[in-house]
């Protein structure tokens, strides 16, 4: 696989090659070269199957990390291509022309993280939420508890216990004293 790492590094500046398992590796590219990298992987390197695409909110670094997992079925090898997108201006090239199912993932990321994919079909339509009016809810600065308390009526008298201490108190009450 190291030929592939070198080739990717030479062509697209891919870095941080990391073999996670025998059949799974990961690498990082710049978001501006993401589309070209995936196109080359699909057309020339045999990674013809897009198995997964998602995003992770790395709020500490101020980026969304996009992850595209492509698979080479002939060699039985999967490659995860990561790209860091600026959180303040998350706009990425659409890959729906490479893989037909790509627009579904992009619609999901648009709704959940607010990452825009210009030109992707139906990217602005709602995906799993209906009538969602709040901010993109998978962003980590979205306060789920505050939103839930403000929106949904709760039943008074609800108590939350930490399972570990609760069971310790109930089963071994003398140990806590």
């Amino acid at each position: 696989m190291n030929e592939l790492a070198k080739e990717l590094a030479a062509r697209y500046g891919a870095r941080d090659w990391h073999d996670r398992r025998g059949d799974l590796s990961s690498t990082v590219v710049d978001p501006i070269r993401l589309h070209d990298t995936l196109a080359w992987l699909k057309d020339s390197a045999g990674y013809a199957h897009l198995s997964f695409a998602t995003a992770v909110d790395n709020i500490e670094r101020g980026v969304f990390t996009l992850t595209y997992t492509v698979r080479n079925h002939e060699q039985g090898h999967s490659l995860m291509v990561h790209a860091d997108v600026d959180r303040a201006n998350p706009v990425v090239d659409s890959i729906h022309l490479l893989w037909g199912q790509g627009w579904t993932y992009q619609r999901e990321m648009k709704e959940w993280f607010g990452i825009d994919f210009p030109g992707s079909p139906r990217v602005d339509e709602e995906f799993v939420l209906e009538g969602w009016e709040g901010p993109p809810m998978m962003r980590r600065d979205f306060d789920s508890l505050a939103y839930s308390d403000a929106t949904y009526e709760g039943r008074p008298g609800r108590v939350t216990h930490d399972p570990a201490t609760r069971m310790q108190e109930r089963l071994y009450p003398e140990a806590g004293k």
């Binding site: 789920s144 839930s148 009526e153 039943r155």
Partner: peptide, 10 residues
């Protein structure tokens, strides 16, 4: 799901 953004509580 007491703190979920999309699940009703009662």
């Amino acid at each position: 799901y007491w703190d979920s953004y999309n699940t009703i509580k009662r």
